[in-house]
Amino acid sequence: MRKTLLASVAALAVVPALAACTENASDGDGGDAKGNARALTVTSSADACELSSGEAPAGTLTFNVTNTGSDVTEFYLLGSDGLRIVGEVENIGPNLTKKLTVNAPEGDYFTACKPGMVGEGIRAAFTVTHSDEEQEVSASDQELIDQAQNNYRAYVQDQSAQLLAKTTEFVQLYKDGKDDDARALYPVAREHWERIETVAESFGDLDPKTDAREADVDFAAGEEWTGWHRIEKDLWPAEAKGYTALTPEERATYADDLLANTQELDKRVQATGADALEYPIDAIANGSIGLLEEVANGKITGEEEAWSHTDLWDFQANVDGARVAYEGVQGLLETKDAALAEELTTKFAALQALLDEYRDGEGFVLYTELTKDDTKKMTDAVNALSEPLSKLTAAVTS
């Protein structure tokens, strides 16, 4: 059986999911012939994660997640091992509701709410039951789906290979003490990570080791901070008050660890045969949505690159990945909702035109050079695209 990024045809394996939220998504057909609902409500509070039902029929499921607590929360649908992310919706502020749309085959799952976005979350078993109501796909639609899957797989594999090559070069420069060269390569290498971030972060064991920000680490609980941003802080010590530089030995340890985790990521992405990843059409659509949410939650705010201030490189790379994922399903979308396809194409172009205003040579200006008016324009452009993009998954799976 082949592994899939969304579901559990290989239920015992640790398989990642392209994860994202969809807002304003359609609730689909609402259920099966027995009256079992495919649209569920989730209420996340400080100490509870309540679902309207603990089961749903196989097919396209929509989770309407409302945060009644005082902290930002997340909601996850996890595989039977409790590790594999089938789908997630992040950054749900107090009194807000977001939707997660996934295509879930029959099987055993877990749901989890994470108040404060920390820890393992409040978990419960969830069952997807058998359904005889399978949506028929026309031959022409299947051809578009197959093309989208093959093209996106090739894109992710290419970006992963380039990430590994650039990371190998970067860590050697860093270990050799060639800090100017390492600083110059840092945002360029990270672009390849950011373009496939929703794929990379779905590997729950690799993402925290590779891309955690200092604020994400619970040092009091004994968590160790490693990865790109640990090295970033050491390369830009002037931006970190009272910072003590790493020794050559410590540099080598963190550099080797980053490279090892990147090698493991590439190994999983490039796998073939029984271990090969698959990219269902809803996963590709959710990947586009998730990448744009990454822009809204970290890049526009300047929180991602706290010391290098190279956030606009990340911004561009997230937009690149979101656009490639969208263009992969665009042909299918045009057969289902031509108006939405036209709107998305126009708003992707508008966001790119705005980003181009901040180019500096082959890169971008630093985040610290942006004014409040600059960040407001970017926020407005991202929000203008986010609203129609949130409808993508429901549209292509209808």
Results as ranks from 00 to 15, higher is better:
E250G: 04
E250L: 10
E250Y: 06
E250T: 07
R251Y: 05
T253G: 03
T253S: 01
A255P: 09
A255W: 04
A255I: 14
D256E: 13
L259N: 01
L259T: 01
N261T: 11
N261F: 04
T262P: 05
T262R: 00
T262L: 02
Q263T: 10
Q263H: 01
E264W: 02
L265V: 13
D266G: 01
K267Y: 01
R268H: 00
V269E: 01
V269I: 13
Q270F: 02
A271M: 15
A274I: 14
D275G: 10
D275I: 12
D275C: 11
D275F: 12
A276N: 12
L277A: 06
E278D: 14
Y279C: 02
D282H: 03
A285I: 13
A285D: 12
A285L: 13
G287V: 06
S288E: 00
I289L: 02
I289S: 09
G290K: 04
L291Y: 09
L292T: 14
E293W: 02
E294G: 09
E294C: 10
V295Y: 00
A296V: 09
A296T: 12
K299L: 11
I300Y: 06
T301I: 10
T301C: 01
T301P: 02
T301Y: 00
E303V: 15
E303N: 11
E304C: 11
E304T: 13
E304H: 07
A306H: 08
A306W: 00
W307V: 08
S308P: 05
H309N: 12
H309T: 14
L312Q: 06
D314Q: 08
F315W: 06
F315H: 07
Q316H: 06
A317H: 06
N318T: 14
N318M: 09
D320C: 10
D320K: 02
D320Y: 05
G321E: 12
A322N: 02
V324K: 04
V324C: 07
Y326E: 14
E327H: 11
Q330Y: 09
L332V: 15
L333T: 13
E334F: 07
E334I: 10
T335F: 05
K336P: 03
D337A: 03
A338F: 06
L340P: 00
L340R: 01
A341C: 08
E343D: 14
L344M: 08
L344Q: 07
L344H: 08
T345E: 11
T345L: 00
